[in-house]
Design a protein around this nucleic acid. Structure first.
Lengths: 254, 254
DNA sequence: TAAATTAACTTGTATATACAGGATAAAAAA
DNA sequence: TTTTTTATCCTGTATATACAAGTTAATTTA
């Protein structure tokens, strides 16, 4: 398979594309082609047989790459026809968002992340959203407070809570690539397997209204997340507050 | 494969389990076993090799069944270990919800659907959330208004909009099985391929507050959905208003 | 006893092959 | 010309096989 052996680097950590399985390389290639406009919305991708011939891969491997792209909402499939490119959104953190008044030909937005405080160690809140195990409670909590901005406007406030279980020197070392997940992967070999979330609408209190530069009592999207990791019993918790006056939170299901 | 040949019936329409592919039969069997408590949260399922021996299926077929169960959040997999049963939620329409104060051993809730009006034909709103094609605009709009209740409390208000394209006598015939999707599948061979949704928090206006039995200006979750169907160019649109004071909207991603 | 190795599991990745069934356009028949 | 049939290409389903790599427990070695 002739797909280019791109090397990704963040901080002291790097991994080669060649370490990835073939279906993921193909997945990334097609994703890049869609994002760069080689294939536009509504276009048919080459057929599975064509892709397997071109890239010298088995059709099953091609299908695995395509099914990941379906899962991520980049394409959808039509039996007898082929794989068709879906419309895309921009992502904000791990969410995608869309401006209300925008039409299809979106302009891009400048997304910034601001660290409100350095990561710090603290006790767990007594009224924590999820039930915690005694082990988690005893370990204490690493807390991150971040604000995500779109075009200079604060849109999302994110509190992340990590039980301090075998994570030496976490708070004293800076985040790699400004990303929590890159840091966990590189420094502690922790990967996220899946995430479970609960969403509700709440009224902004004084603190949240202030940080999101909106009025008190204005409706705010509150998302609570639990990330499951490859370390048995280690979960990461996140509490997100989104101002959806200008942007909505989008997702695709298949 | 010895899985029982269950027959599903709704209205005049019925299909046999034997019409389904093998991986879906296995998927449904395991799902039923999880929901009925044969496998509980945290349990290991039989290994892929065991399942393929037991059900006389190839391991690839078993893997396909399991990957669907992963996608739907029933299980997650751990390389080298096996497939592990996830915690489950109850579903409300196509959403799942969870009570805030509930712990793991949830009680079940009585879910009812109320049709606020008979389905009716109307014009499209000028300020419709999504851009409509001229064909859709010209066809007019079939509108459904439904209220979903949990334990007698109204929780979700659902407006569904369908372009009136080659759907003869839709408004004059009753819904099959009280379900829009069953009706579309049975009477018009229309299936949903995927769905795209946008979520935001809004303040309840008088109408929505009244129907959801809450106060004006209280925060409400608003979800706008576009369902893609197997008919080219036919989309179904839904506008959902959820009162999340007591319940949150949950989902799982992998 | 304690540490290291091995063996026996598990899921993940990849190939080869076959046929069913939907979609479409060309060819044949009415 | 219009309809029907056919051929072809597409994705969906299913089997068989092989090896890589993570996990665990038993076994061997120090």
């Amino acid at each position: 398979m002739y797909i280019q052996d791109k090397k990704y680097t963040f901080g002291s950590y790097s991994y080669k594309m060649s370490d990835l399985p073939q279906y993921k390389k193909l997945q990334h290639l097609i994703k890049k082609q869609i994002l760069s406009g080689v294939y536009k919305e509504g276009d048919l991708l080459p057929s599975e047989n064509e892709l397997s011939t071109i890239h010298e891969l088995n059709r099953a491997t091609v299908r695995q790459a395509l099914s990941e792209l379906v899962k991520d909402g980049y394409i959808y499939k039509h039996k007898g026809k082929g794989s068709i490119v879906s419309s895309r959104r921009q992502t904000l953190g791990l969410l995608s968002f869309k401006g209300f008044s925008e039409v299809v030909g979106q302009t891009t937005h400048a997304i910034k992340n601001k660290e409100l405080k350095k990561p710090y160690l603290t006790k767990w809140d007594d009224q924590f959203f999820y039930e915690l195990t005694d082990i988690e409670k005893a370990a204490g909590c690493i807390c991150l407070e971040r604000l995500r901005m779109v075009d200079e406007d604060p849109v999302m406030l994110e509190f992340t809570y990590i039980p301090n279980l075998n994570l030496p020197r976490f708070v004293s070392k800076p985040l790699i690539n400004n990303s929590l997940f890159d840091t966990l992967l590189n420094n502690y070999q922790i990967e996220v397997i899946n995430l479970e979330q609960d969403i509700r609408a709440i009224a902004a209190d004084e603190e949240i209204a202030g940080l999101l530069q909106t009025e008190e009592e204005s409706p705010i999207l509150h998302i609570f997340r639990r990330y499951r990791t490859n370390r048995d019993g280690l979960f990461i918790y996140s509490s997100l507050y989104c101002n959806t006056e200008q942007y909505s939170i989008g997702s695709i299901f298949n």
